[in-house]
Design a protein around this nucleic acid. Sequence first.
DNA 1: TATGGTTGTCTATATCAATAGACATTTTGA
DNA 2: TCAAAATGTCTATTGATATAGACAACCATA
Lengths: 251, 251
Amino acid sequence: MTQQAGNMAGQKVQRQTGVALWRQIADRIRTSINHGDFDDTGMVPPETVLALQFGVNRHTIRSALAALAQEGIVRAVQGRGTLIERKERLSFPISKRTRFSQGIGDQVRETRSVLLAATEEAASAELARQLKIKTGTRLVRLETLGQADNRPVSRATNWFPADRFGAIAEVYRTTGSITKAFRELGVPDYVRVVTEITATHADEGDLADLQLSPGAIVLITQALNTDLDNVPVQYSVSRFAADRVRFTIEN
Amino acid sequence: MTQQAGNMAGQKVQRQTGVALWRQIADRIRTSINHGDFDDTGMVPPETVLALQFGVNRHTIRSALAALAQEGIVRAVQGRGTLIERKERLSFPISKRTRFSQGIGDQVRETRSVLLAATEEAASAELARQLKIKTGTRLVRLETLGQADNRPVSRATNWFPADRFGAIAEVYRTTGSITKAFRELGVPDYVRVVTEITATHADEGDLADLQLSPGAIVLITQALNTDLDNVPVQYSVSRFAADRVRFTIEN
DNA sequence: TATGGTTGTCTATATCAATAGACATTTTGA
DNA sequence: TCAAAATGTCTATTGATATAGACAACCATA
């Protein structure tokens, strides 16, 4: 709080950083919308007011609002103001039993997971170390897209040992759930052993799959799941749109 | 892995996004350096090669490298190449017993925490809800800077109920540790109840305190600590330089 | 219906970002 | 010692970014 919220206009924008003012301002306004700062009116402050608050020209504000309109977040109405069309920020619990759909199930109407691609490959040294197998072991690799209310939230690359889960692609395609696929393949339950979190700028794949605006931030989790016998069953790298999610760690 | 590493040059840069090409490229090169992609030579590829890989003019590459040189990450030597001066990424474990100095103690030679400011204020509605106290209750607020090997890693704002911890500022100033300060004030141990993680762009304060370059990403944790009787003793908002840390959640 | 507040559009100007090409300077190694 | 390879510097041009001002068009409401 205090440090990041509410006082949207408190912090000045940064010039000559390689990031255009209109983009910085668009990001800040989007964050404020998601934080509920304008919920009382349902509208963004007038352009002239924003220009004064951010210390920039009104045209620069208009560029920022145009970008947000392009994303479908706001809609300008001549004579009235700029209306807020949509806001979202999901809270993702990370715990021993982290599961995509269950975790955010009470925050959205519908969650879905789409299989983008399924291939088989040999384990790299890094993957072998994580999954505690030998380098070169066959792995099934699934590229998936997590959706909440038909809006993309995360894109993930998942690796499974092929000997146990060679058929997981097909099972997943029908069930649309890792948990259910595991169950059908003889893994009744699994636990999250470790999660690593980093952040970076969105790459081209993020922009396309997550429908992000360029320059956006993605949160990256690298996670290992094991079955109840502590045998690694899944290693996954997931990329989340940073302005759509927050992670919560309960101990 | 796979998704984010190695293929630095595989993805093209994005034009007309409000983020200058030289900044995108600087961020990508920095990531590659931190990932160890150039460890064999200790140098960044030649400007002409990078220009070809990223599909931009050599002068644009030079702008990116100049920005990294400004950060002290690389140093160009005429006739030889561009040498890598520094790389680091600390791993932060987040668990029931998260503590700054203990968590990364084995990764660096020396950790220190500096008190930037200490004030007293009334609890806002948000803070009161987190700390389970009444709005308006007096709180001690500490602004601290976490350092590892004399390089700033995180800046935090901490709130403590003033009735129990009115003297924490002075104790902290002498001990340089929250854990020790708690101990002197009658709290032998404390646990991390919940941590929330989000990400955003660095603001002006981040740039100054964390010695970041403009456009950098910060990871934000909002955490609540309680004593062993489950009574909240500390609420803190910490901001980490995203390219210097990774969070690890062990279950 | 008149007025104030708001978004939309136009012109003009200055600076930044990016490309393009030429050539100098320095280091390395054959 | 010479040539190749690398960074350094300069000029020139184009498009994106940002500012500035003026005015039109539209909406709500007193």
